[in-house]
Design a protein around this nucleic acid. Structure first.
Lengths: 233, 233
DNA sequence: CGGCGCCTTGACGCCGTCTTGACGCTCCGG
DNA sequence: CCGGAGCGTCAAGACGGCGTCAAGGCGCCG
């Protein structure tokens, strides 16, 4: 839900500039990635999917604009341009290609950081509105982690806090077997990691609410001597 | 359905600048509104709900910043600042208050237009994801964040400032669970984020005004040990 | 200066939830 | 055939969150 430290990708050929941008960004609590040309920048953008890109348009291969276009093919992550070129035409072109902001060198670090904050704030709003809540669904069971809602055959099911936490933990790894210890650690904390009985009791309660026949579970499957698994098909 | 021509509100005291901004914007196909001070600007923003605001920070009453803050109380519409003052501190303050962009005079019209396009493009993405309606409605309850009004079965309900702020926070994320901490942060500020009792008391007061049966709430739902949720269906 | 409304703070009782323990079942190996 | 281990069920009790009420303080407006 909350991303504790957003990731910022810097695409910049001048090492000097990278060397003073990185600490400034890290000082704000961001994780920082670096690339020194367009190709590797695009690669890192797609492999790491950062939360924001700071892009120097004065790249040696000369077509940072191409990076904007390429990223925009599949993502709407914020892109802030920094460039030595301050011509109107350059700015207009970059912005119209999909860049979110444009600063001309030399620029103030404080201003850049403020614009980074503004851009991240906006994109967080988008994520919010999108409500792209990862809903897990098997059979007639749906689990919405973000909205904290569980429905069975389109009927809402009321779960106790602990029941939901337990079910959510299973839903985060659909189809995978979670050991007793893993569940205890995640739901109760490490102190209780030696009491599998806790899991059994609450699993029974969950089954009573979710399963038609508790003796032959459809969703909450027991993996004897190992743990439990949420059916994913 | 979609208004083909977005509305732009210009808040600017210098008539000369308005006189050259208006035709430029209209030339791009936008509808244009004008205000010449903060007060009327805020009024037009709430009555016409434009798609974007261009705000001159050098207003005579000197606190255009206040306009940003006031608008951000209830809307996330894009705000682009134009200002004669180019100090870092000014930019940082405006951006952190919620402004989307900041240009210093003199600026190029082409650049301004490009930044307007970029801002509108982004907010279109937001509206895409969420429904852009500023009024929230469930059952016989309606909440108008912009007008600051709440009605129940078409009857206006009078709420205290704090009650409204609390309800508004819930209405901004209908159906989602807001944790005690989230509500405390948003309504009381981070300093009180460890006093869930505050939320309970005021939630009880809200229920007394909004719910037919406070023991079985229709709108303000409790999520035990987690927080509260505003019903969205 | 007085009154009123609003927010805070504290106390209290209720009710749901979690834990704990006991018991019977099944499966499997000795 | 017997015995143990793992699992599911049930009930009882303790715990703590939640809602409610009332008192107190503060600011605002008349």
């Amino acid at each position: 839900m909350t991303d504790p430290s957003p990731t910022v990708l810097i695409v910049e050929d001048e090492r000097a500039i990278r060397r003073f941008l990185r600490p400034a960004l890290e000082g704000e609590g961001y994780r920082v990635l670096e690339a020194d040309d367009q190709r590797s920048g695009l690669g890192m953008a797609s492999s790491h999917t950062p939360d924001l890109i700071i892009l120097d348009l004065g790249l040696p291969d000369r077509d940072g604009l191409e990076l904007i276009r390429a990223v925009r093919e599949w993502s709407s992550m914020p892109i802030i341009i920094v460039s030595a070129r301050g011509q109107d035409a350059d700015k207009v072109k970059a912005l119209d290609l999909g860049a979110d902001d444009y600063l001309t060198k030399p620029f103030s670090v404080q201003e850049l950081l403020a614009r980074v904050r503004a851009a991240l704030r906006r994109s967080a709003a988008v994520r919010d509105a999108a409500d792209g809540s990862p809903v897990f669904a098997v059979g007639s069971l749906t689990i919405d982690l973000a909205k904290r809602r569980v429905t069975l055959a389109a009927e809402p099911v009321t779960l106790t806090p602990l029941e939901f936490k337990l079910l959510a933990e299973l839903a985060k790894h659909p189809g995978r077997v979670l050991t007793h210890k893993a569940l205890l650690d995640a739901v109760w904390g490490p102190s209780r990691s030696k009491e599998p009985h806790l899991v059994r009791v609450h699993m029974a309660n969950l089954r009573r609410k979710l399963e038609a026949d508790t003796t032959r579970p459809r969703y909450l499957l027991t993996e004897p001597t190992v743990g439990y698994r949420l059916a994913d098909a």
